[in-house]
Design a protein around this nucleic acid. Sequence first.
DNA 1: AGCGGGATCAGCCAAAAGGCTGAGAGACCA
DNA 2: TGGTCTCTCAGCCTTTTGGCTGATCCCGCT
Lengths: 208, 208
Amino acid sequence: MSAITVLLVDDHLVVRSGLKALLGTQPDIEVVAEASSGEEALTAMKVHSPAVVVMDLAMGPGMDGIEAIRKLRERNRRQAVLVFTTYDSDADIVRAVDAGAMGYLLKDAAPEEIFAAVRGAVQGKSVMSAPVASRLFQQLRNPDEVLTPREAELLSLLTEGLSNRELGQRLFISEATVKTHLAHIYAKLGVETRAAAISTAIRREGMR
Amino acid sequence: MSAITVLLVDDHLVVRSGLKALLGTQPDIEVVAEASSGEEALTAMKVHSPAVVVMDLAMGPGMDGIEAIRKLRERNRRQAVLVFTTYDSDADIVRAVDAGAMGYLLKDAAPEEIFAAVRGAVQGKSVMSAPVASRLFQQLRNPDEVLTPREAELLSLLTEGLSNRELGQRLFISEATVKTHLAHIYAKLGVETRAAAISTAIRREGMR
DNA sequence: AGCGGGATCAGCCAAAAGGCTGAGAGACCA
DNA sequence: TGGTCTCTCAGCCTTTTGGCTGATCCCGCT
């Protein structure tokens, strides 16, 4: 039987090289192409039609990983896309799965985990790293932690370093209301201070 | 002439694997050991005495990269340490150089750049990626805005959302001293509040 | 009609943060 | 030796933030 063909997409040559070396040790897996951007990935896809695409989410300027996944899936739904990234950001996980990713692996995953994910992907199985899975479950169990649109808006401004007064002026609400929203946001994020809120917002929601 | 011996330190197996594959293509460079944490690096150092250490700064829990560099240099100043990391954070650059790093490369560096850095390091030459160098130059032009190593360290912890008290405990200094440092940091960053400091630090320094 | 969630606001109080001035110890350098 | 820089600390005062309770309004759903 023929080997599983794989396309690697990552803007870091070192990471591609490492993945290629790791996957190359498996006789039933073959890396047939590499790409360093979303655009390149789409081209390589047409040329090689790999069975599985292993892709980093963060890819410098240009098309980001999520968008690339969506476009790949639009063109050919048979291809399985595995996300392979450094951070287990809540927002990214949700967006990636929503865009059609079959699996979500972290870069510190064990080689066996990566091999299993690639093999599973071609069979339509979904594989994800333990930390990623636990985050998803936690979100499903605690819908209470989902921010309302207004709260999200406020949090977004908060990450720009505004004071309560400034937030109020920007959103045309009183400082008291700002404080109420903030209290709710802190509770949902599980933090006590605005500094921690900013920090976790940027880290876990990918806000910039 | 014998090959340049190298120790790789990175918590991601994939990255180590990739670096090893890349460096392995060069006849005059030999990867003699790998480590996935600062602690492991110190041990590997004693056993193998490599000429060059290539190390990631961000390494999960435990000893961070900066601390590892400092300890490595304490034990043997002949070893050249090259930082090999994803982000070109101002604060990290200052701290790494202060700790004794010989070079600072980004993970999207070209292979030739990496080879040149390794070869340069054993000859005492300092090599850094273009974005890193330009940051340093910019800082040299505006010395007033350059954070001291201690300030950079504090700012780094600040972005994690700690309070003044926590910062003091973490750094073994009084809260008064923390406030003094913060005042200086705010002045240098051109902000008035800690929230704004965190925000600009993360945006402009690529901190995570 | 009633109920719940979201958004809005107020007041009170304690804790945290920030602005200011001053100052000592140690390192480094001219 | 003197000057400069960095790191350290203290006290005082104002502003900001956070925790708490309670309240009104609107909207959508039952």
